[in-house]
């Protein structure tokens, strides 16, 4: 029996659909996520999670560049943006999605699904909300 995707995967899919341009999505999603996660686990903790996620994602997309460094927070995702920009939009979007999924998978394995989903909602705000779900609740 197939296990349904966790809610955070659906959140990521919605956001990726809202921001189909792979490279641009980096600044929209990753920097917000970095701010939120760093406030909880520190910049070093975020970097550790991020670098691990890149490493794991490179098995599918070997061209994906790492380069997260808390010492240069402003340029933390420069390498990622550059490597995504060199790909086709579809390819870049797939890679970015997998990177986000991997990142949140690791987080969920450490702190659980509920807390991870809560952090994603805090990071991405309304953009992470399930509009259809909310409309149904009204």
């Amino acid at each position: 029996m197939e296990t349904p995707d966790p809610q955070r995967h659906q959140i990521i899919d919605r956001l990726m659909a809202q921001h189909p341009e792979g490279a641009d999505t980096v600044s929209v999603l990753w920097e917000k996520l970095a701010t939120e996660v760093s406030s909880i686990v520190g910049a070093g903790g975020f970097d550790s999670l991020y670098e691990r996620s890149v490493f794991l994602t490179q098995s599918t997309f070997p061209w994906l560049a790492a380069g997260a460094s808390s010492a240069q927070a402003d340029h933390r995702f420069t390498s990622l943006k550059t490597s995504l920009a060199a790909q086709t939009p579809t390819h870049a979007s797939e890679a970015n999605r997998l990177l986000l999924v991997t990142f949140t998978d690791i987080m969920a394995s450490l702190i659980g699904e509920a807390l991870t989903t809560g952090i994603l909602r805090s990071a991405w705000g309304d953009a992470a909300a399930d509009k259809n779900g909310e409309e149904l609740k009204k």
């Binding site: 406030s39 686990v41 070093g44 903790g45 550790s48 999670l49």
Partner: peptide
Amino acid sequence: LRQANEHLVIATIEASV
């Protein structure tokens, strides 16, 4: 707490690696 979380995350990731 943040520092502790940071160390815990890093240690956990390193342990996983």
